[in-house]
Design a protein around this nucleic acid. Structure first.
Lengths: 108, 108
DNA sequence: ATTTATTATCGTAATATTGCAATGATAAAA
DNA sequence: TTTTATCATTGCAATATTACGATAATAAAT
């Protein structure tokens, strides 16, 4: 089908999966790394840096905005993208919590 | 196209994205949570617990095995799945490293 | 040997994702 | 006003993902 049965999962499971899904493309990892390094950038910087078409980069930026990991501020004819630090930390915490455990992990 | 241009990204970007992609489905989050809680389980446990068809669960398990997050040991006619703790910690570290930073994140 | 239990794989249908060219939309510059 | 720069959106083609029924494959149980 290609359609995820979201209803049978908890809200938290869906939220966490959504975050991971957005991070699940190398272009979006590259975009985040670049913005982090540069602190701020415009769409065309990423087009030059990464080597995908402008439309494609724009789509990836939209995905990243959909989980509020980045935000874009209109500055004249440019849009200035930057990391949403608060959300960034929040997402990191979500992931850490998922992996955290005091289990033995005694295997079979 | 629907095909990712892996060649234009670094190996690390591709690896990280692959991990995130595998985590990017609520069924796989649910599977990991269940195995973690139960410490160990068989495929049918997950079918009962999650409510997807056996074929579907089997496919998700395959994805999780593809990044070595879990491993399956044949025990008679059952297959005993458990978390690969070493890999688990490794993956956690990868993600933490990605999010770690001492940037100001001064925005525009 | 036959049945039963468990899991993997194959085939298929529905939907989603990726990527890009073309086109809009907007604001600055000429 | 026209041009230029920047970015978003639309439409499309190619490919990937999700889900499941049907079918193997294997080993235990009868």
């Amino acid at each position: 089908m290609g359609v995820t049965k979201s209803k049978i999962f908890t809200e938290h499971q869906n939220k966490l999966a959504k975050i991971a899904k957005v991070l699940g493309h190398p272009a979006r990892i590259a975009i985040l790394e670049y913005i982090f390094k540069a602190n701020t950038c415009i769409c065309n910087d990423l087009v030059d840096e990464i080597g995908l078409a402008q439309a494609t980069i724009s789509q990836h930026l939209k995905e990243l905005k959909s989980i509020s990991l980045i935000s874009g501020t209109i500055e004249g004819k440019k849009v200035c993208y930057c990391i949403n630090k608060q959300r960034w930390d929040e997402v990191q915490q979500e992931l850490v919590n998922f992996f955290k455990s005091d289990q033995d992990a005694s295997c079979c």
